[in-house]
Amino acid sequence: MNNASTVIGIVIVALVIRRQLRTRPVHGKGGVVLLGFLGAMGVLAFAFGVASVVKEHALGAATIALVATCFLVAAGFGVVRARTVKVWRAPEGQLLRKGVPATTALWLVSIAVHIGLDKWIDHTTRTGLLGASTVYLYLAVTLAVQDFLVRRRAASVA
């Protein structure tokens, strides 16, 4: 991952963590915009990463398995983090949510695990292009799963 991508990734993760520690409505539209942005950037970056690697050699089974594992891990962290988010109904009737310190800790562990998977993916391809290209999709998957589960849990709050 080049320096610009690293800085952008750190800024996005910091903003996401900061946002999740604030009390906000469950059904806000800001999450949809962020997920759309991350998804679009993720598809472009991943397509570029795959194209760059296959110029030199075919993707092996280990690489494909590690990329799939990367996204399964993202979903898993989304499930676990969703359970740490407090959901309640305000006296005015609005559904609210707020992450707790455990939510932040899980974000940091999730990012560390992703970095490790990135390095492992790149080791299997012998290039430094594919692993780093998964970061935006990783964030999109983990946020989408977390958001879906928090919204589903909020629907049951009476």
Score class of each variant (00 low, 15 high):
G99M: 02
S156C: 08
T6I: 15
A45E: 13
S52W: 08
L21I: 01
V43T: 06
V150L: 10
L129E: 03
L137E: 08
V79M: 09
I115C: 09
I121T: 04
V67N: 02
L106A: 03
L117A: 07
C70D: 10
L143G: 00
L129H: 11
V135L: 11
V87D: 01
R83Y: 03
L38T: 04
V87R: 04
W120Y: 11
V54G: 00
V141E: 11
S52Q: 15
L66P: 00
K55Y: 07
A82K: 02
A61P: 06
M41L: 13
W120N: 00
P91D: 12
S133K: 04
W88E: 06
R97A: 09
L96N: 03
A58D: 15
R18P: 00
F48H: 12
G36F: 13
T142H: 08
Q94W: 09
R153S: 02
V73S: 05
H114A: 11
R81P: 11
I17C: 06
N2D: 15
L38H: 05
Y136G: 01
G76L: 02
T63C: 10
T69Y: 02
R19T: 05
R24L: 09
A51V: 01
V85R: 12
L96Q: 15
L139Y: 02
E56M: 13
P25L: 12
L149V: 03
C70Q: 07
I10M: 09
V157D: 01
K86G: 10
A14K: 11
T63E: 09
H114M: 13
V141F: 12
